Amino acid sequence: MPTTHQPWPVADFHCDVLCKMMLNSGLDFNHPELDVTGKRLEAGGVKLQTFAIYIPAEAGNPGMDHVARQIQIFQERIAAPKGGLKTLLWREEAERVARSDSREIWGMLSLEGVDGLEGNPFYADLCFALGVRLIGLTWNFANWAADGVLERRNAALTNKGRELVQRCNELGMLLDVSHLSERGFWEVMEQSARPPVASHSNAAAVFPHPRNLNDEQIKALIIRNGRIGLTFVPMFLQEKGSPPMDRLLNHLEHICALGGAEHIMFGSDFDGIQEHVIGLEHPGCYPALTELLLKYYPEELVKRWLFGSAISYLQANLPKKQN
């Protein structure tokens, strides 16, 4: 079983460790206050971890300096040589990750909300040049580009938000629809040149949290051949407290029933949560999730959900390296 052998490969499409390290400069990448550490990624078999750039309210007015600071933290303290992680930028590298049987760990940068781009769609060019490959337009509320899912007016994209999507299309930047208002979701689905992902969302039909996706949204992502990253946020699984790990299976089953077995991955939201799913407190716990999944599903499906689905998406949709 996975706990007695080398852990199976895992790709995790969302964590918030960069935000924590920005707010507390004393945290290194193996500090016990972090959920995600280099040692835990290795213990859990995580071959690819996406690191979100998120600017919390306590950081002050969001600006490009916050974005640059978190990119710097990733480059200087998490990526090789100090942190040891290789940086995933190009389709050719995704192909290397997919076929490699080595113990290399890769990191990819995402932007969770474009508040820090200061209303300038062309700051996306700078982010792309600095290694960002996935952008979500909003967090939960409105900004200059779009409304978030908790914004009561439920507006779609602004004119500048549409400019940003177009610029992402031109750059090869991937788009993330987690956190978007429903109207914004549908507009991005229509305008994005590449299949979007929902990096960390569950199924609203199973548990009706605003951040979970309704059936029509899930089916739209399936039709576009996008991906849905099931997340370990307790409040997306039950009303209060720490849920058991098997609560995730209801969401997984529901997405499969909608035709999404080929489109499921994981986006833990580690370091973005205060409470945890019981038994899934950090990336080192992925072998326990593997064991749970193997009780109900064949190995081929479990391997796809843990790793194959995410990496095949990147193989198909990341830009090719320009020589």
Results as ranks from 00 to 15, higher is better:
108 M>Y: 00
109 L>P: 01
110 S>I: 01
111 L>Q: 01
111 L>K: 01
111 L>F: 00
112 E>G: 02
113 G>A: 07
114 V>E: 00
115 D>Y: 13
115 D>K: 12
115 D>P: 12
116 G>P: 01
118 E>F: 11
118 E>T: 09
119 G>W: 05
119 G>K: 03
121 P>C: 00
122 F>E: 09
122 F>S: 10
123 Y>S: 04
124 A>D: 00
124 A>Y: 01
126 L>D: 10
127 C>G: 02
128 F>Q: 00
128 F>S: 00
129 A>T: 09
130 L>E: 00
131 G>H: 05
131 G>L: 02
132 V>Q: 00
132 V>K: 00
132 V>H: 00
133 R>N: 00
133 R>W: 01
134 L>R: 02
134 L>C: 03
135 I>Y: 04
135 I>G: 03
136 G>A: 07
137 L>H: 08
138 T>Q: 05
138 T>H: 06
140 N>E: 06
141 F>D: 09
141 F>N: 11
142 A>N: 13
142 A>V: 14
143 N>L: 04
144 W>Y: 09
144 W>K: 03
144 W>L: 08
146 A>R: 12
146 A>Q: 12
147 D>G: 06
148 G>E: 08
149 V>Q: 13
149 V>R: 14
149 V>M: 14
151 E>W: 15
151 E>C: 13
152 R>Q: 14
152 R>N: 12
154 N>Y: 03
154 N>M: 03
157 L>H: 05
161 G>Q: 05
162 R>W: 10
162 R>E: 14
162 R>C: 14
164 L>V: 04
164 L>C: 06
166 Q>G: 15
168 C>Y: 11
169 N>M: 04
169 N>P: 03
170 E>F: 11
170 E>T: 12
170 E>P: 06
171 L>G: 04
171 L>R: 08
171 L>V: 04
173 M>D: 13
173 M>V: 15
173 M>I: 15
174 L>G: 09
176 D>F: 02
179 H>D: 01
180 L>A: 07
180 L>R: 09
183 R>N: 11
183 R>K: 14
185 F>S: 06
185 F>H: 07
186 W>A: 09
188 V>I: 14
188 V>D: 07
190 E>I: 12
190 E>C: 14
193 A>N: 07
194 R>D: 02
198 A>V: 01
199 S>L: 01
200 H>C: 01
201 S>I: 04
202 N>K: 10
202 N>I: 11
203 A>F: 11
203 A>H: 13
204 A>N: 12
204 A>C: 13
204 A>W: 14
205 A>C: 08
206 V>M: 11
206 V>Y: 14
208 P>S: 12
209 H>G: 10
211 R>A: 07
212 N>P: 12
213 L>S: 04
214 N>D: 15
215 D>V: 11
215 D>W: 05
216 E>V: 06
216 E>P: 02
217 Q>A: 03
218 I>F: 09
218 I>R: 09
218 I>M: 12
219 K>W: 05
220 A>T: 08
220 A>Q: 05
222 I>M: 08
224 R>I: 06
224 R>Y: 07
